[in-house]
Design a protein around this nucleic acid. Structure first.
Length: 194
DNA sequence: GGTAGGATAAGCT
DNA sequence: GCTTATCCTACCA
């Protein structure tokens, strides 16, 4: 079934709104021609030049974070801790460095491919963290700056998306801006991180 | 059940 | 030199 990718206008809104509305939508990867997909169950908002935890803090543009300043609906993929990739969806206006970090998925399609990339782990461990889901989907820096509307990675609307309770907490793994409530989870989902 | 520590490298000061 | 939007293993309870 062919489903429409979320349009740029979806992302061209306040980042915390986008982070909430991405919960329940479907992320599809066709890296190496292998279809892998999952439902987004956990996100975090990084909200621009005034957010001390955001890579775009003080609007400092570097080679690493360049795509964070790109058009809404762009993939921002960065490398961290010497071995892990993380995937974000760029939000708001061109030139405004903000994005939603995709932190966990409920695996839906391509279990064999995910397990080949991730190792023989329980289903719960396939995509329950930002670096885990990148490994499961084959996401690396090659996809940084690509479109989430028509690229190898796409986010599509789930026509059967339920209206579900959302839990809001502070963000994880940061040392500045620690009390800002910008992490969003589908309440009761067994697929979230940690 | 829980958590401390190590892996490992780019980017920043 | 130090920090980092993480994960896994080893070890303790």
């Amino acid at each position: 079934m062919k489903r429409a990718a979320l349009p740029a206008a979806f992302y061209a809104r306040p980042t915390s709104v986008v982070a909430r509305r991405l919960l329940g939508q479907i992320l599809i990867s066709d890296v190496n021609g292998r279809r892998v997909a999952g439902r987004i169950v956990e996100t975090e908002a990084y909200v621009g030049p005034d957010d001390p935890a955001c890579h775009g803090y003080r609007a400092r543009r570097t080679r690493r974070n360049a795509s964070l300043f790109g058009p809404p609906g762009t993939a921002y993929v960065y490398f961290t801790y010497g071995m892990h990739w993380c995937l974000n969806a760029v939000t708001e206006a061109v030139g405004f460095p903000a994005a939603v970090l995709l932190r966990a998925l409920e695996p839906l399609t391509g279990f064999a491919t995910m397990r080949r990339r991730r190792g023989d782990v329980p289903d719960r461990a396939l995509c329950s963290g930002p670096a885990k889901l990148c490994e499961a989907l084959g996401v690396t820096g090659r996809l940084d700056g690509t479109s989430l509307q028509r690229g190898v990675l796409r986010i599509v609307r789930d026509p059967s998306r339920q209206r579900r309770a959302i839990i809001v907490t502070p963000r994880v793994g940061i040392s500045r801006g620690v009390d800002w409530p910008l992490r969003f989870l589908i309440a009761g989902s067994p697929w979230v991180s940690r």
